[in-house]
Write a protein that binds this DNA or RNA. Structure first.
Lengths: 109, 109
DNA sequence: CGGCATCCTGATGGATACTG
DNA sequence: CAGTATCCATCAGGATGCCG
């Protein structure tokens, strides 16, 4: 029997669209890639790795990524305060897919 | 030798970010999924499959997808005119990755 | 039928300054 | 150090109507 989709399977809240929304922000992929390359990283270090991002935007993106379960935020009660971000398992499971997408991009763009 | 990326590998024009830009538009994934499910499809049929899209936006998205090599546009000189869109090989090679991302989304969102 | 022209609006992104 | 607060710019996305 043939595919019965006359409607796009991506209507409603399909997981693909949802995923795209979650990682689709301007800096989110960069943040995830940076954490993946460098491991646990402090706020200002992330900022240094992302050329041109402002505090406003970076903080907002990190907060969303944390809310959506992509990164963890750990606060160390030192003076001055130290905050480190890291990828969650969930993000790590995403990496091979992002790498596949990257490879696709290299060959097709 | 360990990874030397202190800078995020996604700076500059990395293929991953570029890919995300190309397929990141609000309707583009839906369009691609629809064409993948249904094959060669007419303009108005695509519009019917995408709930709530306006002509303006759909035409713009299709034009961009065509420009970026994701879809082909074939005009049949009939009256009234018939136009059909279809996926390119490039898009078809993208599908397994999108499906992987979709699977990831299903398990992780 | 398959669009394009026009105008509009909200969300996203950003610069700058300031604070616990 | 790691953010907020504020204000501003841009633009993707959308409603509507018209055209070849």
């Amino acid at each position: 029997m043939k595919d019965v989709h006359s409607q796009c399977p991506c209507m409603e809240r399909c997981p693909l669209n949802r995923a795209m929304e979650l990682i689709g922000g301007k800096w989110k992929i960069q943040i995830i890639c940076s954490l993946n390359s460098n491991g646990k990283t402090r706020y200002n270090a992330i900022k240094g790795n992302l050329d041109g991002v402002s505090n406003n935007i970076l903080a907002k993106a990190l907060k969303e990524l944390e809310r959506d379960g992509f990164v963890t935020r750990t606060e160390y009660m030192e003076v001055p305060i130290r905050v480190e971000y890291d990828l969650t398992i969930k993000s790590k499971r995403l990496m091979p897919i992002l790498e596949a997408l990257s490879d696709w991009g290299e060959e097709n763009i």
